[in-house]
Design a protein around this nucleic acid. Sequence first.
DNA 1: ACGCGTGTTACTGT
DNA 2: GACAGTAACACGCG
Length: 256
Amino acid sequence: MPELPDLQAFSHNLQKKLAGKTIKKIDVHNAKKLNVSTNELNEILSGQTLEKVYREGKELHIRFSKGDVLGLHLMLHGKLFLFDIKNENKYAIIELHFDDNSGLALTDFQGIATPTLNPEKKDVPDALEADAGYLKKRLAKTKTNIKTVLLDQKILRGIGNAYADEILWHARISPFSVSNKIPEAKLNDLVEAIKTVLEDAEKSILKSNPDIINGEVRDFMLIHNSKKKQSPAGAAIIINDASRKTYYTDEQELFE
DNA sequence: ACGCGTGTTACTGT
DNA sequence: GACAGTAACACGCG
């Protein structure tokens, strides 16, 4: 549910609240896909101090004093909670207990949020770091529609369904455009829109919800927003029903 | 009160 | 092999 700007805000706040705390114990309740055993996780992380929380693609990464990293992928419904002594939130996946009796819980009613110890480094660039040259080269190699490409974590990491729509509207490119038919000037607009839309969203979220560590804020979105009927200039918002909904307007140029 | 929404994987079909 | 489409995961929320 949370997308890149939400995760960015969470990592900012978790960093503020948790940096300097030391792991006492980790309880694993329902982590089907955790890549190590509960014992191994505790042996490696217990006693280490939390140094940094940051975002990598759609994952939050927690780095500890000996360099080990715990990655958390929230998937659709993962939620983070801070607690004192005991976690009372339902559907716990994993709980980190710190030496001051505070803790961090990851929950997910669907049970698919995934913790990973020392996740592999990825070659794929993050949405906030990709440069125009890379995207142009990569897009020239595919005739998939551009929205699918933006959502493809093997091409660009971090963009989800709602922000893909928002970005494409800002770049005035139809989501159904064929990737390798989009002209150079439009690709520059796209690269620019990726950065500004995501960065501005993070600022909006932190402004309205300064302490946010779960859920998502979407009320400022201009196009992917079920409460809106029109773009700022008055173009009707069209909703395409597929397995994931696409919101767009006829202000966006179709290249095919 | 019931239908919508979100990421990923796995799979079928063209 | 490239690409499209769908189901499953299963509940909170409005």
